[in-house]
């Protein structure tokens, strides 16, 4: 049943022209950033040659290209997920799911997988860019895979955030703005300092803090656990909210 719902959700998303417009713009943006960083890398060869541990092309691109791409993901996640439940409210279609033999867990997980699948598919264009450059220069694929894993985990967290806010309102734009505000807050949380000293608790809760390791090629268990728990928490809140709707006069 989860597969049926995920397929329906991804098809719904792919039916929207705005999805293709965003994906096209994304492709253009990624290509521009990628080529720009390759050019910068080539132009600084003389400086890099003087360093003891100069970064290779893979390290250069994962920290200077994939890291900005992560910021784009922060915006794309809510944009792709904003209609998931808002549209169900707006079109009065939630009764279809609520009167069908579909559990709320299956509904939420199915919708999450559908949206996350489309977003991760769009982000997979980054692989093509790396594949292209690997024809002319050897790459550290482990570092690239690490950065991509971080990107996918971040995308999942952003989709879960968008999904949660979309189940709170029938206005998709409100859901997007609330999601963006939440994600921006979580991203910047780690930069908060008390008497110029960073607060460890806030750093531990920061998205930026947990994604940076992936860009440097370090896959830490606590970073993976952070994203999995964050995504799980938001999906659980979505399930609770939808179950609560059966008790309210909506």
């Amino acid at each position: 049943m989860i597969g049926v719902i995920a397929k329906h959700e991804s098809k719904q998303l792919l039916r929207l022209p705005v999805t293709w417009v965003i994906t096209s713009l994304l492709a253009g943006l990624f290509a521009f950033l990628f080529l720009q960083q390759v050019e910068v890398y080539l132009s600084r060869q003389a400086e890099l040659a003087l360093l003891d541990h100069a970064p290779g092309l893979s390290a250069w691109l994962t920290t200077r290209f994939v890291a900005p791409a992560s910021l784009v993901t922060l915006i794309l996640g809510p944009l792709f997920a904003m209609r998931s439940f808002s549209d169900e409210f707006r079109l009065d279609t939630l009764a279809l799911w609520q009167s069908s033999p579909v559990s709320t867990i299956a509904l939420v997980v199915g919708k999450f997988l559908g949206v996350a699948g489309v977003l991760c598919g769009a982000l997979s264009m980054v692989w093509l860019l790396f594949l292209g450059i690997s024809w002319v220069s050897p790459l550290d694929w482990q570092q690239v895979a690490s950065a991509m894993l971080g990107l996918y985990l971040l995308a999942s967290a952003c989709v879960a955030t968008g999904l949660f806010f979309s189940c709170l309102t029938k206005h998709a734009m409100v859901a997007v703005l609330a999601s963006l505000a939440t994600l921006a807050l979580l991203w910047l949380l780690g930069t908060a300092a008390f008497n110029a000293v960073p607060v460890p608790a806030l750093q531990a809760a920061s998205l930026a803090q947990h994604i940076s390791g992936f860009h440097q090629g370090y896959i830490a268990t606590n970073d993976i656990a952070y994203f999995v728990l964050y995504t799980g928490l938001l999906l659980t809140l979505t399930i609770i909210r939808l179950d609560a709707l059966r008790h309210t006069n909506h």
Binding site: Q12, R15, L91, D92, L94, A95, S99
Partner: peptide, 13 residues
């Protein structure tokens, strides 16, 4: 059971 609500639950697209 099968249910047709007051507003049919349809996806216009």
């Amino acid at each position: 059971l099968g249910y047709l609500p007051d507003t049919p639950p349809l996806y216009p697209d």
